[in-house]
Structure formats: C-alpha cells, structure tokens
C-alpha cells in the first residue's frame, strides 16, 4: 500500500505538469492562421453605441495599438505613427434612412498630443470639405467626415458614394462627442 502511495505521489506532479503544458500551449497557439489585425481586448478611444446615434446596427469593435496599427492601415500607418498614434477603435455602422441602407465606417483615433491629432486630421481632411454646422472644427464632404477633439480624431467614411450622409454623419459625431459608452 505504501508503494502505491509513493507511485501516486510521483505520478501526480507529472499529471499536473501535463495539464499545465496543455493549458499553456492552448493559450500560446495562434487561434487563426489569418492575420486578425486586431487586439480585440485593447482599450482605446470610444465609439458610440448604435442606439445613441440612430444606427440600425454596428459591426464588432476592433482595437489597434502601436504594435498592430500596420495590420489596420498597412503603409498608411506611417504618418499616424509620426503624429504620435497610440490607439484606435474602428467599427462599421448601418443606418436605414428613407428606405435606403447607408453604411459608414467610423474610426476613433487617439494620439499622444492634441497637436499630433490635429496634424493627422488636417492631412486627412479632403480638399473642398466644408465645416459641419454645430460641430466646431469638423469638416466633411458627402463621403468623409474628419473631426479632431483634443488628442482624439474621428474619421467617418461612407460606403455609399454620393448618398446624403449629413444626418448620419452628424448623429454619429455628436454621439461620439457625448462619449457614449459602447
């Protein structure tokens, strides 16, 4: 009986080791072979909930930081990093307006300083973009809105070129300003 106990005591650590190895390996192994391009749990600037801006739906939030920004923007990440990019949150909103579906990509981007955010916003503001009434500092065309607030920048891109976007753009931007939690 004593020998059985000794052998069990020897085997027990081995079994624990095997379980530990299994758990560690499961955590370390990449979940997908395709670049996900997003650190899903990273904190970042907020995007509003769909209900707060009148959207019919929103895709899953994607978060990026300095180590994953190239997965989001590819070579477009270079000027972002030059301007002090720290984190971003990206999602696509769906609006139903007048029997038509309007899809808008929203990116909330945080920089290390207001100066960096302003510089990036200026670089991305399309030529001919007009100031948006009620949103001081925001500029938009029909397909893009860029707004800088402090060290955060909001960029909205419409997926329906030529469609009337001023309503959904303004609603999204106001909800973003309100800091509505997702």
């Amino acid at each position: 009986m004593r020998r059985v106990i000794i052998i069990v005591l020897v085997l027990l650590p081995l079994a624990v080791l095997a379980v530990w190895i299994g758990v560690r390996a499961h955590r370390l192994r990449p979940k997908s072979a395709i670049p996900a391009g997003t650190s899903a749990t990273a904190p970042g600037p907020q995007l509003p909930s769909p209900s707060s801006c009148g959207a019919a739906g929103r895709s899953q939030l994607e978060h990026y930081d300095r180590s994953t920004v190239y997965d989001w923007l590819d070579g477009g990440a270079a000027p972002y990093l030059d301007h002090g990019f720290t984190t971003s949150t990206v999602a696509t909103y769906r609006f139903e307006t007048g029997g038509r579906t309007l899809t808008i990509e929203a990116a909330a981007v945080r920089f290390a300083s207001p100066r960096g955010a302003a510089a990036q916003a200026a670089a991305e503001t399309p030529p001919g973009a007009a100031p948006v009434p009620g949103l001081p500092g925001a500029h938009s065309t029909r397909d893009v809105l860029v707004w800088c607030r402090g060290r955060d920048m909001l960029r909205l891109v419409s997926f329906t070129p030529g469609a009337e976007t001023s309503g959904p753009f303004a609603a999204l931007a106001r909800a973003w300003l309100g800091g509505t939690a997702p």
Partner: peptide
C-alpha cells in the same frame, strides 16, 4: 492620396 486605405472620393 491617403493610401493605401483611402476612403475619400476626392483622392
């Protein structure tokens, strides 16, 4: 401009 992602038709 603003490549490779773009978004604005002005580009």
């Amino acid at each position: 401009a603003n490549g490779p992602q773009g978004g604005s038709l002005a580009d």
